[in-house]
């Protein structure tokens, strides 16, 4: 139900006389339409999280990378704590 997946904005267009900002969002090989009304700052090339046809968040690439560094970071932190206790 809360399934939402990230895709890349390929194209932005205005529908209904400019009232609705829609995007073509690419998920792997599939392209789907999504409303950009909740993410006014989104531009072509951004990755957005799409849920039931509505983009709800722009993926923050810097934060995404932190997950990959997390284990090293806590490792270093633990070392630091250990050495402080000596």
């Amino acid at each position: 139900m809360c399934l939402a997946i990230p895709g890349k904005i390929k194209e932005i267009e205005y529908q209904y006389g400019g009232a609705v900002r829609m995007a073509k969002v690419q998920f792997g090989g599939i392209t789907k339409e999504a409303s950009l009304e909740m993410v006014p700052a989104a531009v072509v090339g951004d990755y957005v999280l799409v849920h039931v046809g509505v983009a709800i968040s722009i993926v923050d690439e810097v934060e995404a990378a932190k997950t990959f560094a997390y284990l090293e970071e806590i490792g270093e932190l633990d070392d630091l704590i250990d050495s402080c206790q000596l």
Partner: peptide
């Protein structure tokens, strides 16, 4: 839905 779906 939950809060996730409410905006749509």
């Amino acid at each position: 839905g939950f809060e996730t779906t409410a905006p749509a």
